[in-house]
Design a protein around this nucleic acid. Structure first.
Lengths: 84, 84
DNA sequence: TAGGTGTTTAGACAAATGTCTAAATAATAT
DNA sequence: ATATTATTTAGACATTTGTCTAAACACCTA
């Protein structure tokens, strides 16, 4: 839960999630959408992976990142606890 | 949205929200539930207020904090965008 | 085996964060 | 008035965070 909120507490990381909502993308493709350096984006992806918000799959030299919804459900559950 | 995620990115602040879920409480009552100093809790309450997650109401020397659900709905909306 | 491309790791650094103590403010009670 | 209680403000300080550049690693191609 800590890693989840930590990962979500950054606008760039949230934008990455919204980007991946459309389709999986490679690290490079993701980086191209932002003005930060590739190492910076790589670090953001690492935090998203630590929170289990994305999964990564290496195919050759490319690493493809995919959105992982299951952990969002955990957040949803936490949130719904307040709606009652 | 930034202030919201920032406010949620701390276990103490999330615990405060869960505490206020039961009923409104004064700053002192809230502080009594934690081992941190009162100024520290006061600061946490300030961040929660900035995110509009709680509202505060001063009556005499006591300040009562109340959970505000409307902004949680905003988060819920953001979350549901991924569920489709 | 080289050289090129995609990605991550390492290390540095300024800015933000969470905590504390001491002091200030505000309301109440004697 | 003075002291007591409730809360916040101010300032300090160590830790964490987001960013960068330079270098390393991994894979591919000729």
């Amino acid at each position: 839960m800590n890693a989840l909120f930590k990962a979500l507490n950054d606008p760039t990381r949230r934008a990455i999630l919204e980007l991946l909502r459309e389709q999986p993308r490679t690290a490079g493709e993701i980086a191209d959408h932002f003005q930060f350096s590739k190492p910076t984006i790589s670090h953001h992806l690492d935090l998203l992976r630590q929170a289990d918000l994305v999964s990564s799959d290496k195919q050759g030299q490319f690493v493809t990142y995919t959105l992982n919804m299951t952990v969002m459900d955990e957040l949803l559950g936490w949130l719904l606890q307040f709606k009652s």
